[in-house]
Amino acid sequence: GCFECYYNRPKKKFGYDCADLARLAAESRFNVNEVEALYELFKKLSCSIIDDGLIHKEELQLALLQTPSGENLFLDRVFDLFDEKQNGVIEFEEFIHALNIFHPYAPIEDKIDFAFRLYDLRQTGFIEREEVKQMVIAILIESEMRLSDELVEEIIDKTFADADADGDGKIDKKDWKEFVIRHPSLLKNMTLPYLKDITTAFPSFVFNTQVED
C-alpha cells in the first residue's frame, strides 16, 4: 500500500501520487522504483533555477551545457521534443516519456523517429539540406571548430549522397531509417546507459519511496 505520500506533501507543487507513478511505470520501460529514482533527478533539475517543479529551458540548458544562457539550436530542439504540451516547460510525465526513448531497451524505431524529429528543424517531414547546413554551422560554432564553407558544403554533399537514397534533395523518414541503420553510431546519443540502473544513480529514492518491495 501507500504510506504517507512523499509526493503529496508539497501537494500542488509536484502532485504525483502512487497511482500516477504506477501509471507512468506502466506506460514506460521503467518500473515504479525507477520512476521514483527519475523523480529525484527531475526534482534536482526542476529546482536548479526556478523552484516550481517544472523544468524550464534554462534549467535543461544549465544541466546540459553548464550555463543557463546563450543560444543552442540543439538544446532548443531537445527541449521542444520533451515539451509535448508545447507550453514552455517540461513536466515530470513528459520527462519520463522522453527518457523512455533513451532507454537502452527502447525500440530502435523510436530512437530513429526521435532523432529524425530532432533534425527536422522546421518540422516539414523532411530533413532538408538547408537544415543540415544550419546544424553543421551551429556545431562548428559550439565546438569552436573552423572549417571553410567549401569543406562544409563538401561534407553536406557527401552526407546527402549517402543519405538521400531517392535523390530528391531531402531526407525523408525512409531515407533516414536506411541511413542510420547503415551508420548506427549516429544513434549513439539516443541511448543512455545510465537508465538501466537509475536506482543506483539516485539511491535517495529509497528514502522517499512509496512502494514497498
Binding site: 533527478l41 533539475l45 540548458q61 544541466a63 546540459l64 551545457l65 543552442n72 539550436l73 540543439f74 538544446l75 532548443d76 530542439r77 531537445v78 527518457l99 533513451f102 530532432l118 533534425y119 543540415v132 546544424m135 553543421v136 551551429a138 556545431i139 562548428l140 559550439e142 565546438s143 569543406l151 563538401e154 561534407i155 553536406i156 557527401k158 552526407t159 549517402d162 543519405a163 551508420h183 553510431s185 549516429l186 549513439k188 546519443n189 543512455l192 545510465y194 544513480a201
Partner: peptide, 25 residues
C-alpha cells in the same frame, strides 16, 4: 586529403544532444 566526416556525425557531437550530462553530479 582526409575524407570529410558525415554531417550528422558532427551534429551529434553537440552537448545539447548529449543527455548523459543530465546524470552528472
Amino acid at each position: 586529403q582526409p575524407t570529410p566526416m558525415n554531417a550528422f556525425e558532427l551534429i551529434s557531437m553537440s552537448k545539447g544532444l548529449n543527455l548523459g550530462n543530465l546524470f552528472d553530479e
